[in-house]
Structures are given as C-alpha cells and as structure tokens.
Amino acid sequence: MDLFLTGKKVLITGASQGIGEALAKTLAEEGCDLHLVARSGDKLEAIKAEILKDHKVSVTVQALDLTKEGAIEEVLQAAGDIDVLVNNAGVIPSGSLWDVDEKRWREGWELKVFGYINMTRAVYAKMKANGGGVIINNIGNGGEVFDPQYVAGTTGNASLMAFTRAMGGHSLDDNIRVVGVNPGPVDTDRIYNMLKKRSASMFGSEDRYKELEARYPLGRPAHMSEVVDLIVFLASKRSGYTSGTILTVDGGIASRRSII
C-alpha cells in the first residue's frame, strides 16, 4: 500500500530512543525527510547515520532540552517547513500522589503536557499558513486507565486526550488533522522498569516482574511495530478523514479497566 509519504517532512520530538527512534526509521523507509529532536546529541547522530546508510532521505538532528526558554522557536527555525509533527517527548513519573511531589509532577508535565501544547500552538500556526498538515500526539493509555499508582501520568495523559480532541475537532477547517495515539505497554526498557517497580511494591521484590508481564494481553507488551505502523498510517493521506480522535493500542487493557 502506497502511503504517499515520499518527500514529506516530519518533525519528531523525543526521537533518540523508544517509539521516537523506531518511528524515525520507519518513516525513512517510507521516504520521509526527518528533523529529529531530543536531549541526546550522540544518540541522534547514531540514528541519523543508520538511517542515511539505508535510505536516500534528508535527516537533520537537533540536541535540545525542549523545556528551555525559547526552545520551540529554535526547533521551528531549524526544522523549516514541516508536513507532519509527532509530539513524542517526555515521560511523566509513576507513583502515588504521595510518591510524586510537586517538583517532579511539574517537571514531568512541563516537557510532556505543556511541551505538546506549546509545540502544537507554534506548529499549527505555521501549518495553517502553509496550507495544512498533520499533528500526532503520542499520549498513552494511562489517560484512560485511572491508576492511582500513576496519578501524575494518568492526569496528564487525560489532559492531552482532551486537548487533542478539542483541537482536532475543528482543525480540518484549516486542512490540518490533529490525532492522538494511546499506546499501552510497549517492549521498551521503560515498561520493564515500571514492572519491576510495581513488582517491588506488590511482592517486595523486583524479581517477580515477569508475573506481571504475563498478565498483559498475549502475555507480552506490544511489539514496537504494532504502535509505530499505526502512527505512520495516521500521518498519511490514507488516513485523511481522521481528526479529533484517539486511537488506543493496548491489547484491550483500557477496556478491561485494569493497568495489569
């Protein structure tokens, strides 16, 4: 299936690892030019080299802390005109209301919640002036599973879900699509760190985390491609009538109303 993405310019934040890294590589396979942003310049350069070895696309990288004052303006200046924005940067800390103090809560929201909002504000205006585009928010199913042991994350993700729906409900009037993706557990280091922390809390030892993993649908987290391929499809004109909605990829966890 031709996704008609060849030559499209895509800006990905949080592109140095996990979903961001995998997404960059998959979009390169589709012929997209890329602007990749993350804190780690070394990791970005390594990803760039790997992509350019296999694909004839343009890749620019920008090592930047997106919480720094003026950072978004720096990104827009460096990236130039873009067709697709994927908001992906940021991890909100897990823990209960008493585990996550105000400082850590605000730090997590500054990068992910306000980072997505502020980047969308800036990029939307530029896309509108240029005739259209696509904005994809990688959020997380914590916004649908109200887990008190992930209280800062579930609250932040729910806010981003509302933001995505609010923006995407009318954005096609400007030929811009705004959509969200809610991955559940994905096969990354982060999910295993979370499982080990939960295992220690539940069983008194991190070593029993495999018992929690076995409770996931199919007894495993999602494969990276099962999330990334959806994001790529949403970026394409094949998904041209999709806006103001959230697509959840979690094996049905949110519908079970249980995080594990």
Rank of each mutant, 00 (worst) to 15 (best):
L3R: 15
L5Y: 05
L5D: 02
G7H: 07
K8R: 15
K9N: 07
V10E: 08
I12F: 09
G18A: 04
G18V: 00
I19A: 03
E21Y: 02
A22S: 01
A22G: 02
T26M: 14
T26L: 11
L27N: 11
L27G: 10
A28D: 08
G31V: 08
C32G: 04
C32S: 14
H35C: 15
L36A: 05
L36T: 05
V37Y: 11
S40H: 07
S40G: 04
S40T: 05
D42F: 04
E45W: 15
E45P: 04
I47S: 01
K48E: 15
E50L: 05
I51F: 11
L52C: 07
H55V: 00
V61W: 13
V61S: 09
Q62T: 08
A63K: 12
L66V: 11
K68V: 01
I72F: 15
E73V: 03
E74G: 10
A78Q: 10
L85G: 07
N87M: 10
N88D: 03
G90S: 13
I92N: 11
S94L: 14
S94R: 10
S94E: 13
S94V: 07
W98K: 13
K103C: 06
W105Q: 05
V113S: 07
F114K: 04
Y116S: 00
N118F: 12
V123S: 06
M127R: 06
G131P: 04
G131F: 09
G132S: 04
G133N: 06
G133T: 02
N138Q: 06
N141S: 13
N141K: 01
E144Q: 15
E144C: 09
P148Y: 14
V151W: 08
V151N: 07
G153F: 02
T154M: 12
A158D: 02
S159T: 12
M161I: 14
M161W: 14
T164S: 14
R165F: 06
S171T: 05
N175R: 05
V179S: 00
G180L: 03
G180E: 10
V181K: 02
V181G: 02
G184D: 14
R190V: 02
M194H: 11
M194V: 09
K196D: 07
S199W: 13
A200C: 07
G204E: 08
S205M: 05
K210N: 09
E211D: 15
L212C: 14
Y216K: 03
Y216M: 15
R220T: 01
E226I: 00
V227D: 05
V227G: 06
V228K: 07
V228I: 05
D229P: 00
D229I: 00
L230Q: 06
I231N: 04
I231Q: 11
F233G: 03
R238T: 02
T242A: 09
S243E: 11
G244E: 01
T245L: 13
T245N: 11
I246C: 12
V249L: 09
G251I: 06
G252Y: 06
S258A: 15
